[in-house]
Design a protein around this nucleic acid. Structure first.
Lengths: 78, 78
DNA sequence: TTTAAATGTAAAGTTTACTTTACGTTAATT
DNA sequence: AATTAACGTAAAGTAAACTTTACATTTAAA
């Protein structure tokens, strides 16, 4: 499974951005070329972005994919 | 668009692996939990892996996603 | 306290990643 | 030269990412 820090990062950006740059779900969605629904579903963890979208997101936040997304093995360890 | 070094990296591994560890398309596919078709299509660039699969691949090669996959902007710059 | 902006939810449709099957080609080994 | 392992192709089906639409809830500001 994949866990992500999308919501936290975006909300942080919203607070920090002095000039009220657009870090709303809608603003981010537009810059990424996806719909707001896509942002919502990713923040909720309902589904994972494609690799292309993951790259775009990382670029928007100016970090690496690994900074936002983390892969966790699901294998049972009894 | 996304370009990847999958084929090069895998072939390099095949040559380097002294003990003939399984770096064939089939061997890699099995360890990744996908089919050989998936490996072929990715090496050809027919389609991009999901983020989950990209993570698994990076883990197999013991590198980061960015070491294997590169995102290139498609926007026209005339 | 009303209005509007931002967020959330749900469901049906499209696109793309990925599977399955089956067969053809190349390269290495005997 | 014949066999086999590895690679390549094609096509139809399934699963998951992503869109579209529409409406409901929360939050902030007038």
């Amino acid at each position: 499974m994949i866990v992500n820090k999308l919501k936290d990062l975006r909300e942080k950006k919203m607070k920090q951005s002095v000039k009220s740059e657009d870090w709303t779900q809608e603003g981010l969605a537009k810059r990424l070329g996806v719909t707001r629904q896509t942002i919502i579903s990713m923040e909720k963890g309902t589904y994972n972005p494609s690799l292309v979208l993951a790259f775009k997101i990382a670029h928007e936040f100016r970090v690496t994919i690994e900074d936002i997304f983390e892969y966790r093995d699901d294998k049972i360890e009894s």
